[in-house]
Simulated scan of single mutants.
Amino acid sequence: MRIGYTLMTEQAGPRALVEHAASAERAGFDFEVMSDHYFPWLDEQGHAPYAWSVLGAVTAVTERVDLMTYVTCPTMRYHPAIVAQKAATVQELSGGRFTLGLGSGENLNEHVIGRGWPPVNVRHEMLGEAIEIISQLFDGGYVDYVGKHFRVDSAKLWDLPEQRVPLAVAVSGKQSVQLFAPVADTMVAVEPDAELCRAWDVFQGGTARKVGQLPISWGVDREEAKQRAHEQFRWFAGGWKVNAEIPGTAGFAAASQYVTPDDVAENIPCGPDVEPIAKAVEEFRDAGFTDLALVQIGGEHQADFLDFAKGELLPALREV
């Protein structure tokens, strides 16, 4: 299993993210993923730069690592034809290292355009149409499209990369797997769910790429690391079916007001030790994931974490 690093736009500004990207490559991570948000989850995180500008800069300071959006919603804030253009450009800049990760989005980020937030079945319909449009544009030539949710009039990607951009799609259950596994190259999920992996493999085969994500709060003082995880990541406890619906940081603060530091620490490895992290990584490996991106909680703690990853964590995980 390949181990990646998360460039979490909700907890660091654009210049810091670019520095973290270069440092993570030097530390030995295999790939890097980047969130694409208009809002942080909580006020305490305090950031939300434009991911695509940051990705362009990241391509200039890295040479080896694969890059990926984790994930972009191509249905409301962005029209799918524009997402295809952005993805093709990043693929060109990166020399073929980019995967376009897509998902049906969260109210948190999409409400800003003032169109309201559709129910999940409609969001899946919209994502399906968006993937059709993006795939047709990646095929080359002019594209016209008339669907239930989108129209495209004579669009064309004029800078089409030599290496086609792979598509990854975030899924959370059998319904989304059945909808998107036939039209994507890679699965994205945030829980070590073996059933999801098996369902995806029915369509893609056992060698298909399946990318997970694991938040950790590394630090030499376990209590401080636990408090930091609670302060910045307690929103995670709601689960994606809830998290997709809440429209703002105040809502996430209210929804997580009864989540305690101990509750968070039960689900997120906290402190200086490799063993709890390795155990959590093994759960994804055993479920069938091929790739796992780590999230170090706390934007100001990235440099020390990357030193730890290079010297201790990554060698230990590769032994496992």
Results as ranks from 00 to 15, higher is better:
residue 2 R to T: 08
residue 4 G to Y: 09
residue 7 L to Y: 06
residue 10 E to H: 06
residue 17 L to S: 08
residue 18 V to C: 13
residue 23 S to D: 12
residue 25 E to S: 01
residue 25 E to K: 00
residue 30 D to P: 09
residue 34 M to F: 05
residue 34 M to S: 12
residue 36 D to M: 03
residue 36 D to P: 02
residue 37 H to R: 07
residue 37 H to I: 02
residue 41 W to Y: 15
residue 42 L to S: 10
residue 49 P to S: 13
residue 56 G to K: 12
residue 60 A to H: 07
residue 65 V to G: 02
residue 68 M to D: 03
residue 73 C to N: 11
residue 74 P to A: 09
residue 76 M to F: 10
residue 78 Y to L: 10
residue 79 H to I: 00
residue 79 H to W: 00
residue 83 V to L: 00
residue 86 K to I: 10
residue 87 A to T: 06
residue 88 A to S: 14
residue 97 R to N: 06
residue 98 F to I: 07
residue 105 G to M: 07
residue 106 E to S: 09
residue 107 N to S: 10
residue 108 L to D: 09
residue 114 G to S: 06
residue 116 G to I: 02
residue 119 P to Q: 13
residue 119 P to I: 09
residue 120 V to L: 14
residue 124 H to I: 11
residue 125 E to Q: 15
residue 126 M to T: 07
residue 129 E to L: 09
residue 131 I to C: 07
residue 132 E to R: 13
residue 135 S to N: 13
residue 137 L to D: 03
residue 140 G to L: 04
residue 141 G to Q: 01
residue 142 Y to A: 11
residue 142 Y to Q: 06
residue 143 V to E: 02
residue 144 D to F: 03
residue 145 Y to V: 04
residue 147 G to C: 05
residue 153 D to E: 08
residue 153 D to Y: 07
residue 153 D to N: 08
residue 155 A to R: 01
residue 158 W to T: 11
residue 160 L to M: 03
residue 169 V to P: 03
residue 170 A to K: 07
residue 172 S to H: 09
residue 175 Q to N: 14
residue 181 A to I: 12
residue 182 P to V: 11
residue 185 D to C: 05
residue 186 T to V: 15
residue 189 A to N: 14
residue 191 E to P: 00
residue 204 Q to R: 15
residue 205 G to I: 07
residue 205 G to F: 10
residue 215 P to D: 02
residue 216 I to S: 01
residue 221 D to T: 09
residue 230 H to C: 08
residue 236 F to G: 00
residue 237 A to P: 00
residue 237 A to D: 08
residue 241 K to S: 12
residue 243 N to V: 01
residue 245 E to C: 00
residue 246 I to M: 06
residue 248 G to H: 14
residue 249 T to G: 05
residue 256 S to L: 05
residue 258 Y to V: 01
residue 265 A to G: 03
residue 267 N to E: 05
residue 272 P to I: 02
residue 273 D to P: 00
residue 274 V to E: 06
residue 276 P to G: 01
residue 280 A to Y: 05
residue 283 E to L: 13
residue 283 E to T: 10
residue 288 G to W: 10
residue 288 G to T: 14
residue 292 L to D: 04
residue 294 L to W: 02
residue 294 L to D: 03
residue 297 I to A: 04
residue 299 G to R: 10
residue 303 A to D: 14
residue 304 D to K: 09
residue 307 D to P: 00
residue 312 E to A: 05
residue 312 E to D: 13
residue 316 A to Y: 12
